[in-house]
Nucleic acid binder design. Sequence first.
DNA 1: CAGTGAGCGAGCTTCCGCTTGACTT
Length: 671
Amino acid sequence: MDLIIVESPTKAKTIQKFLGNGFKIKSSFGHVRDLPKSELGVDVDKNFQPKYVIPTKARKVVSELKKESAKAENVILATDEDREGESIAWHLAEALKLKNPERIVFHEITKGAIDDALKEPRKIDMNLVNAQQARRVLDRIVGYKLSPFLWKKVMKGLSAGRVQSVAVRLVVEREREIEKFIPQEYWQIEALLKKNEDEFSAFLSKKDGKPIEKLEINNEKEAKKILEQLNKASYIVDSVEKKQQNKNPLPPFTTSTLQQSAWQKFKFPAKVTMQTAQKLYEEGHITYHRTDSLNLSEVSLAAAEKFIEKSFGKKYTEGIKRYKAKKNAQEAHEAIRPTFADRTPESLGKIDSRQLKLYTLIWQRFIASQMAKAVFDAVAADITANNYTFRANGQVLKFDGFLRVYQMKFEENELPSLQKGDDLALIDVKPSQHFTEPPARYNEATLIKALEKDGIGRPSTYAPTLATIQERNYVSKNDQKRFIPTETGIVVNDMLVQNFPEVVDIQFTANMEEELDKVAEGKDDWEKTCKDFYVPFSKNLKEKYEVVKKENMDKETDKKCPKCGSPLVERMGRFGRFYACSAFPECKHTESLQAEKIDVPCPKCKEGNMVSKKTKRGKIFYGCDKFPKCDFALWDKPLNEFCQKCSSILIETKKKEVKCSNKECDFTKLQ
DNA sequence: CAGTGAGCGAGCTTCCGCTTGACTT
């Protein structure tokens, strides 16, 4: 009997079904060895020799695999075909002390792909393994050298890393763009016109045949001046251009685009999307959900085409469509797709509502990706009025194509049939005032998109990265669930950007990937790659330890200490800012500051007021501002109203339901 | 559901990427 080891237990089960009793399939649950958590674990003076240990969590798996491999005739390592997968294979070989492991790869879980792979075993590719070692060691050095620097210069418990620090930087820089943004006024002029009985509107686009720039009409006076010349003008159709506009379907989902769409459509946080996808994957409804690939198995493509033809007719197919992933994708898996094209969302039966929503999205996107393009009839008409030109655009859907399955927003606007030389009746000319708008703050979807664009982070780390930068209190979410940097985030970011610009550069990852490619191709040593980074980095780090002063996060205030009369200062603590007496340590008076008042008296002590605060993990809760004297606290927002049944205070839940705070009481207020 | 900071100096914090369950609260 041969033993096959893969990474995911669900994958193991599926493969076991395909291969039957001749093989035993086990999973490694990801990496089985890593650098130790408690120390650097890299001997920088001895060619970056890494010290690998088996984390306690992986011990059980490793001993189980050891037992199985001893019984097996051959051990076949079938981890993913990418840098990390090759590395896992090597670590398995080392940890299990395998003599002659066979290495096989496949990028889709189909019987054919697995049979083919088994016919072509190879050796572990040490170049690829070494590229992974370089990646791992570089990330460890950056993280474990910069974090302690921050502990010393700013505050304990902080962290820095190749991915998280760039994520924070994006948020900080966006906030600065918004701060310095000055809105510019501009005016648009719309003409309401009529041909026969059909009304339509056109926008002013040119003067003397030259396009009017967006900010050209920048005040009301200018707009009025133009208006005067337009009121009495005659409106003649100058040209009519008709054409067909095609809209192609979107490619199937990767992790990143799935997280973005699930946010846009359902407001699922990335973490919820991944948890929900995990369940769909485990239940066999979808393919693997951590992927950057757009590949689709031949079987699935054929099934989709058949399904589309049967359900919507032949004109909804255009043959098989293949999509290419972006550069630097590792493509160890397929795109995220339903396991069976004809398993419609309706056919799933009883299923958790979030799972149903996500499955529907994945299914529609996959089916649509194989459907015909949508076709619009578009008309663009130029209409002259004296020396001015107006533009009227019309767009009518002619054939819905993939839009039949995957809805996307588009506007339809029908124009009357216009001919060159038509004399149009003017109903009204309306000027409208507008202002340019600052760029939007990032939300989970747009931040993930921005990171992915520059290759920063991987499918398995987008969601955890968002969690980390919030846990460290570098960024928080506002009411619209958009990221804003905290003071800590700004201070840490500025310190890193100023002193370690190359590490927190958006391009750092891309440059690193180029170096890693050379290692993977056998053109460079991985140790040299580490050294090229480490030597200048450590020299700079040593200098900065001496030059950079400890950040003083204190802020002076006008307030006086109620106990001793000394001035109070705003100080940064583990839970954000607070007021502290400047006579500390003689006087230990403190007051809370980060708390936000919500104008509801505390129902327990009647003296304090309820304030909103955050836990260590950044979760919002509501507590009495007389804490620790009064320990009243709630998860949901209290209202200044009381329960008719038990007279406990009423709360407003996250779903905007008004309920009684007493868990024994079932009172709910209908709105 | 949560009280912070200084300094003594011990012991600890921290990275990214690959995988899921096993813990109480």
